[in-house]
Design a protein around this nucleic acid. Structure first.
Lengths: 104, 104
DNA sequence: CACCTATTTGGCAATATCGCCAAATAGGTG
DNA sequence: CACCTATTTGGCGATATTGCCAAATAGGTG
């Protein structure tokens, strides 16, 4: 297989969006229910501007959508299939080669 | 759900290892067959030291293992379940909310 | 041992990421 | 409109990532 730079840059950008502790938490939390920026800000304890920028990264990656209601903005997960991947991450963490084949 | 910093830092580290075009390519290529550093270097066209460092990131994340044979080092994927995740990434790329639920 | 190939490590410059603050924007209320 | 809350944007300093080069390490061969 040849290395198609553009192909992998596109895909890495989406995965990179998931590769930050705060953004990973947002994905898992939004999988449970939609949340506004102020709620997510309180949960992680960072500055709201920081939270807003993290959500912007997820949005630009196509992983979440935003919905403005009144003066609040609610974010929703667009891609529940991502959750299936987290089981595999657990298997990697446990260094458990036996389960890495069917953790999905 | 509360934000457990340590929990998400651990998991983000593994995902971050996947979030680079070259490393993503290595994962897909190693899913097909094991490869030595020199083969991977030729495929991507970067300096061998750069390739070695990328492989080191994947190894530290627990995603690949290395096996030295003679003066060559072969890398193997430890976590085939990661491949299941790529289907979801495609769905995100296609902006296809309908398929994001069962792309796994 | 001298020499060659394969790989890793150290270091550096360029660039990207992160989190904060301050300011701008937008909606709601009196 | 004045004012308050929620959110985003711009910018800055600190830190991390990336890819190259040079040097170090390790195995194979004569």
């Amino acid at each position: 297989m040849a290395y198609n730079q553009k192909h992998f840059v596109e895909r890495a950008r989406i995965i990179k969006a998931l590769g930050h502790p705060v953004r990973l938490f947002f994905i898992e939390e939004l999988a449970r229910q939609e949340r506004c920026v102020c709620e997510l800000t309180e949960m992680v304890g960072f500055d709201m501007s920081t939270v807003s920028k993290h959500l912007s990264v997820l949005k630009n990656a196509g992983l979440v959508i935003d919905d403005k209601r009144g003066n609040q903005v609610f974010y929703q997960l667009t891609t529940p299939c991502i959750l299936n991947f987290f089981g595999c991450v657990e298997a990697v963490l446990n260094g458990d080669p036996a389960t890495t084949n069917d953790a999905c």
